[in-house]
């Protein structure tokens, strides 16, 4: 009986909704015709329209006369006066990595049989480079200057994007050079080495950015450093395993890379949303 009543109620509700929609459609037509009739009785004053157009032309003219700085020049000024100490050290380290590999290869420090050691080091160094990206972003977003920067023309979001692009490109260039040189020197397949290096690199980025997204992580940079150190520890235990570096395991590495990229993309999106809302700049 209860079920029958509920069905009855659902049907009645659906009918009244349809009835209302039908009613609304006819009410709308009727009301629309009233608006149309009212429009005919009150034509627009063309003189006022022309006055508005003339005013807009004058305003556009006065805007054209304002001195405008070229965007390229504005960007040049920004780069000229921005703090370059941390990016400078970052560039040095990125240059040092491939040079070190080249030197190690020439001096035959590790030899052909120590490819495993080389792979391990190739995985750890990019993680170390990630710390620079993290500190550059921290300096931009978490010092008092970021709050000030958000009220400027070049706002925090644009500067963060610029910083991330710059450090990301630097890191990728260093990593690519490292992969190429290590692969050549120690006769490791490039694609394989790519996966071994990029997976911890991407996950390290995820870890650092993840810390920036939480208030605890922002308040305690040492927490990020501590978490960051666990990754190389995991890598070193992984390097003991024989199966981790077989061809069969490549699919797992590829899946891990894909997952890492997805997580990083999601974190970047959340980061910019929080930055826009002011949640990151104004930690209470």
């Amino acid at each position: 009986m209860y079920k029958k009543n509920r069905t009855h109620l659902k049907i009645n509700t659906a009918i009244s909704v349809l009835h209302m929609q039908g009613e609304s459609a006819s009410a709308t037509d009727d009301l629309k015709s009233r608006f149309t009739a009212a429009d005919r009785q009150l034509p627009i004053d063309e003189r006022r329209k022309s006055e508005t157009l003339a005013l807009l032309c004058r305003e556009t003219q006065s805007r054209a006369n304002r001195p405008v700085q070229n965007k390229r020049l504005l960007l040049r000024n920004l780069l000229r006066y921005t703090d370059r100490s941390l990016p400078g050290i970052h560039i040095l380290c990125c240059t040092a990595l491939p040079l070190l590999l080249l030197y190690a290869g020439n001096r035959d420090f590790f030899g052909e049989n120590d490819a495993a050691v080389m792979v391990f080091l190739s995985m750890v160094f990019p993680c170390f480079l990630t710390f620079f990206s993290y500190f550059e972003l921290r300096q931009l977003c978490l010092t008092g200057i970021a709050e000030l920067g958000k009220t400027c023309f070049f706002h925090a979001g644009q500067l963060a994007a610029l910083t991330m692009a710059f450090s990301g490109i630097l890191n990728l260039m260093a990593v690519s050079a490292g992969i190429f040189l290590a692969g050549l020197q120690w006769k490791i397949r490039l694609l394989q080495l790519c996966l071994y290096v990029l997976v911890p690199f991407i996950f390290m980025q995820c870890l650092c950015l993840g810390c920036m997204l939480t208030e605890t992580g922002r308040r305690h940079p040492w927490l990020n450093a501590a978490l960051g150190l666990t990754l190389p520890l995991c890598l070193s235990s992984l390097s003991q395993s024989q199966t981790a570096y077989t061809e069969a395991a490549l699919l797992v590495w590829a899946a891990a890379l894909f997952t890492g990229i997805l997580i990083l993309a999601a974190e970047i999106r959340i980061f910019f949303i929080k930055l826009e809302k002011g949640d990151i700049l104004c930690t209470e």
């Binding site: 009150l42 627009i44 329209k49 157009l53 807009l56 556009t60 054209a64």
Partner: peptide, 26 residues
Amino acid sequence: VHNGDKEALNLIIAAYYDDIYRFCLY
């Protein structure tokens, strides 16, 4: 309009002035 084209301003007024005015009027 950004480039200072007055004809574009004319087109904007022609396209949208009436609707905006009537919206305010109603």
